[in-house]
């Protein structure tokens, strides 16, 4: 990706260092990580059809974010579905997360225990394999159980077909570049 292909909102707002990926109709990042780009793969016109209200300002593929490298301090995902950590040996997504992360950036993933794109056990395995592949610790893995109704009171999480969902885990990846 060359400089001309970067999204102007990414290049013009360098003070904004947080990004939510695959936000759909939600705005979790905006609330809990203020000054945050809200992105989704769907076009804004498609989201206008699906959502009562949406907050997406940039439509982009989470595996190909149109911005320069070393850009974000916090990368947030709520219930990633359709992209993520599904397949063994597929490092497209992790490579992109690594590329756009600043040193010591946090990647926060709220998820369930049965989400095949991002369940904690699966992400842990993928991170271990990825670090081994690069013979260095590019990401540190941690996770905790959460009570999303209590921890994020008043915020509603939804599946891609607008059914309420209640994330049970918060995965925290720390990106190490030094």
């Amino acid at each position: 990706m060359n400089l001309a292909e970067y999204h102007p909102l990414f290049t013009d707002n360098l003070q904004v260092v947080n990004i939510e990926l695959g936000a759909g109709c939600g705005n979790f990042g905006q609330i809990y990580y203020p000054e945050c780009f809200i992105t989704d793969m769907e076009t804004k016109s498609k989201l206008d059809e699906i959502c009562t209200n949406h907050f997406v300002t940039i439509s982009c593929d989470a595996r190909n974010i149109p911005c320069e490298s070393n850009r974000f301090k916090n990368i947030i995902m709520c219930n990633p579905y359709g992209y993520g950590f599904k397949d063994r040996r597929d490092y497209t997504f992790l490579n992109e997360l690594y590329r756009v992360s600043l040193n010591e950036a946090n990647i926060i993933i709220l998820t369930s225990g049965v989400n095949r794109f991002a369940t904690p056990d699966k992400v842990k395995i993928r991170i271990k394999d990825y670090n081994l592949e690069h013979s260095t610790t590019r990401f540190m893995f941690d996770y905790q159980e959460i009570d999303s109704e209590k921890d994020y009171e008043g915020y509603n999480f939804f599946t891609t077909n607008r059914r309420k969902t209640f994330p049970k885990f918060k995965i925290a990846l720390k990106c190490l570049k030094a």
Binding site: Y81, S112, V114, T159, T160, N161, F166
Partner: peptide, 13 residues
């Protein structure tokens, strides 16, 4: 397809 994936997620949970 988005509805389909949503149903898939909803069923599992």
């Amino acid at each position: 397809l988005s509805d389909y994936l949503g149903l898939e997620q909803f069923v599992m949970e």
